[in-house]
Nucleic acid binder design. Structure first.
Lengths: 134, 134
DNA sequence: CCGATATCCGCAATGTCGTCCGGATAAACG
DNA sequence: CGTTTATCCGGACGACATTGCGGATATCGG
């Protein structure tokens, strides 16, 4: 409580300064959220975990394992591939996909583990707020 | 390879089975991607990292530190709060927000670190594909 | 009590994203 | 060589989230 009786623009200049320096740059935030956006889709995450378990799968088998539409899987894979998360290996008329090797893969493994874990312990809060009555 | 000359529904039944068991359940995938969807927004992630650095901030100071619209920040906070990522503390006409304590917080710290790190080393691949010629 | 202010909320407009559907391409089989 | 099959591509359609604005609410200062 070091402020005067009223509050003008910055209520707490110290913390505002701290927020400024500890914050993501706009560019990093953009890049990061693009990636998160790619992961923010049930079919895509299920594809990734399926590939994590099976190493490599073609579109049809993927659709079979996930009980999803071939087209939807194909589209999802296209998005994942565009962002470098999966790699395609052509074998005749079949397209085999696997997680991209390199820095992406160990990260994905770790992140999916953590997120998977979090999703499990996160209670279903459809529209719940905190601080209901006040 | 152990398959016959042609391929019917499952090209590789073994891997399909592996994918089935290693895969996220539909419910978990849903829950997980909802959370990822919340994180997949530049303003929201910047808010989270700002709160991570400053501990607690009111809407106006947050908007100030992030150079964003008050309304946008307010809306973003509403979304974050609805999903239990931040907590509100009312102080007069001001609303102070902080990262939710508990299991969410250490996860967020870790995930944001990792993702932040990944975003840095992930090269900008706007429309790049792999396997260009053959 | 009255004016100023911080925040929240409802509503409408906008843009983006995923899915469905038809067809195109290319390869395997007989 | 023709047929069947696996996958990809493009356009249309619908759902959804985000934003901006005007107003409502409640608090602070005098």
């Amino acid at each position: 409580m070091a402020g005067p009786g009223t509050h003008e623009h910055p209520v707490d200049p110290v913390r505002v300064a701290a927020a400024r320096v500890g914050q993501l740059s706009a560019g990093d935030a953009e890049q990061l959220t693009v990636l998160l956006g790619v992961l923010a889709d049930p079919l895509r995450t299920r594809i990734l975990t399926a590939l994590l378990a099976a190493d490599e799968l073609c579109v049809g088998d993927l659709a079979l394992a996930l009980e999803a539409n071939d087209d939807a899987v194909s589209y999802a894979l296209r998005v994942l591939r565009r962002h470098g998360l999966v790699t395609r290996r052509a074998a005749g008329r079949l397209g085999f996909y696997r997680l991209t090797d390199g820095h992406t893969r160990p990260f994905l493994v770790e992140a999916l583990r953590q997120l998977q874990d979090l999703a499990r312990r996160q209670p279903p809060q459809p529209t719940g707020q905190n601080e209901p009555p006040g």
